[in-house]
Design a protein around this nucleic acid. Structure first.
Lengths: 138, 138
DNA sequence: TTCAATACGTTATAGCATAACATCGCCGCA
DNA sequence: TGCGGCGATGTTATGCTATAACGTATTGAA
C-alpha cells in the first residue's frame, strides 16, 4: 500500500515526480525502476532521477538502501528523524521497516570516541523475513 | 600494510588467489580491482572473481562492504567471529576497522523479536574519518 | 541588468554483477 | 576399472547501477 506523505511544496518538478514514485511504492525502488515509472511524465535519462534522489536523500525525504542499491521514501510522516536509522528489509515481500534506537546510537558513539573516529554517516540494514512472510513459509 | 593471515589450505586455486589479493591490500578492493591484480595469474573474467568471493564470504574469510561495493579480508586472525560485525570505513585513507558489539546485537535481537522479524543477515557500516585522517585535516 | 547559483537535458561511458552453457577433475562406489 | 555425481572452472554475452562532461534554462539577489 502506498505511503501517505504530503510532498513538500518546494520540490522541483523532477524531485516531486521522484518523491511521488517512492511514496506510491510498497517497497524500495531502484533508480531505473523510478525512471521507468516516470517516462510517461517526460523523464528520459538516469541522471535526471539520480539528481533528484540526491536532493531527496540530502533532505531526509528518502533513504538509500545500500544493500539493495535502491531507495525508499522516509517513513517518518514529518521527517523529523535525526541520527542513525536502521532498516529491516523483508526478503519475502520487499517491505522495509524503519526504526531508530538510541542505545545503538550511543554504543556506536562510544566506540567512535574511543577510537577517535569521526562518524559522518551510518548504514544499518537487517535482511530477513517479516512476521507475515515467516508465517507463510511455515 | 598487508594483513598477515595464513590462507586455509583447502581453498581452491582461484579462491586462494583472491584471498591473497585481499590479504595484501591495505583497504577494500572491488571485484574488478581484484581481477586486475590477478590477470598475471591467469584470471580473465569477473565471474571467476565473484565466484571465489562468494565462497570466501560464505566461509567468513572475507566480508562484503555494501556501501562500497567492495570486499575486505576478515580482520579476525582465526575468523572466529560470530554474529553481527560492524565496519568503520575511513573516507580519507580507505582503511576499514572491524568490530563487534554485543549490546548492539542484543538491541537488534530485541527489536526483531518484538516485531516477529527473522534476521538473516545484518549490515552495519560507519563512514567517516579515522583518527589519523582527522588529525591531518586539522 | 548582470551575475551567481542551481536545476535541467542529453549523450556517452564507467563500474558492478550475473545468466547461460560447456568442460574439467575429483571422489565415491558398483 | 569404469560410471556418475558434484563442485569448480572457463568463456561469452548481457544486464543493472552510477557518473562524467557538456550545454542550456531558470531563478533570485545585488
Amino acid at each position: 500500500m502506498a505511503h501517505s506523505h504530503d510532498v513538500p511544496a518546494d520540490l522541483t518538478r523532477n524531485q516531486g515526480l521522484v518523491m511521488g514514485a517512492l511514496n506510491h511504492s510498497v517497497g524500495p525502488l531502484s533508480a531505473y525502476d523510478i525512471l521507468d515509472k516516470l517516462r510517461a511524465d517526460g523523464l528520459r535519462a538516469p541522471l535526471q532521477v539520480y539528481r533528484a534522489l540526491d536532493k531527496l536523500v540530502e533532505r531526509g525525504l528518502a533513504h538509500r538502501l545500500e544493500s539493495l542499491n535502491a531507495f525508499v521514501a522516509c517513513a517518518d510522516e514529518h521527517c523529523h528523524r535525526k541520527g542513525l536509522i536502521a532498516f529491516a528489509i523483508c526478503e519475502g515481500c520487499g517491505k522495509v521497516d524503519e526504526f531508530a534506537d538510541a542505545v545503538i546510537e550511543e554504543r556506536l558513539g562510544d566506540w567512535a570516541q574511543a577510537k577517535g573516529f569521526k562518524v559522518e554517516r551510518t548504514t544499518m540494514e537487517i535482511r530477513g523475513k517479516c512476521e507475515v512472510c515467516v508465517a507463510q513459509a511455515a
